[in-house]
Design a protein around this nucleic acid. Structure first.
Lengths: 142, 142
DNA sequence: CCCTTTTATTTAACATGTTAAGTACATTGC
DNA sequence: GCAATGTACTTAACATGTTAAATAAAAGGG
């Protein structure tokens, strides 16, 4: 027999998005652990890669991290010498964050593995469906 | 000019899912704050609503919460008398969680508001697209 | 200039995410 | 029965999410 209250609960957009995200992240978490970095730290490293540097706010936007979280994450990444920071000339409120040697090294090692996992997901769902999914997620995010 | 590294970063499934989820949650967070409950506490309340009771593990499955998080959440919900817990007869390892009066009251008040916000999202994206999205998210989560 | 307002980042406090370890009870196989 | 193994839940420790408040510097207006 059906339980309409249960259905309403299970068919729920935030949870459907969360479940899908957890499934996807399940593929990537083992890779992250290899380098002892968190998912959020990896987002920061990826956002900085190939850039001359980014200010903290710009980094927060790109990584979807809130400023207080990012402050702590950058502190940890600096301690591990994955990134460096410096004041912005002409505006001492701003900080410029740059990827350092060790951070670039992690990117070089992780990136191919990450790409390979992504290809698996693409293969499983199908490229066409995946493209549709991106489109719909984008529509939703506007 | 285009930066292929940036594109690879921005077009990234976990972040696309996260961004979409944040957009959706942006609609619901003000409602949650009205009753001073968190998103996760609301998931627990919804999962319990209309049920005679659920064991902690079953609740964790339904709400996509990890057991250690759920332990703390249930403690908070019990202190606020939104739920009650009791040992399961015949197996003293298990706990049965039930929604209490105050929890049901919160559900009654929140549920219509939540439903109204959901309808807004549905209207904005379109029912057909939304259905397709659910389908794709489901495919991904298998 | 100086005072007010805005902007960029950090700190604080509490809730949750995450992995590992602990605890207590149940089950299994001998 | 009982020792070994498995199951259900909790605790611990540290990272991040979230909101509010603090800090410091820049911008603007008189």
């Amino acid at each position: 027999m059906m339980d309409s209250e249960l259905r309403a609960f299970q068919k729920n957009l935030p949870m459907a998005l969360l479940r899908a995200r957890e499934t996807v992240m399940g593929h990537f978490r083992p890779l992250l652990r290899l380098h002892d970095i968190t998912e959020q730290q990896w987002r920061v490293i990826r956002a900085l890669y190939g850039k001359p540097g980014l200010e903290v706010s710009a980094l927060a936007d790109k990584t979807l991290l809130l400023m207080p979280s990012l402050t702590r994450i950058l502190k940890a990444l600096e301690e591990r010498e994955f990134v460096t920071s410096s004041m912005v000339e002409g505006d001492n409120r701003r900080k410029l964050i740059r990827l350092d040697h060790k951070g670039r090294a992690v990117h070089q090692m992780m990136s191919p593995l990450s790409e390979a996992e992504y290809k698996k997901i693409e293969a499983k769902l199908g490229a066409k469906k995946l493209k549709t999914l991106y489109q719909l997620l984008n529509d939703l995010s506007d």
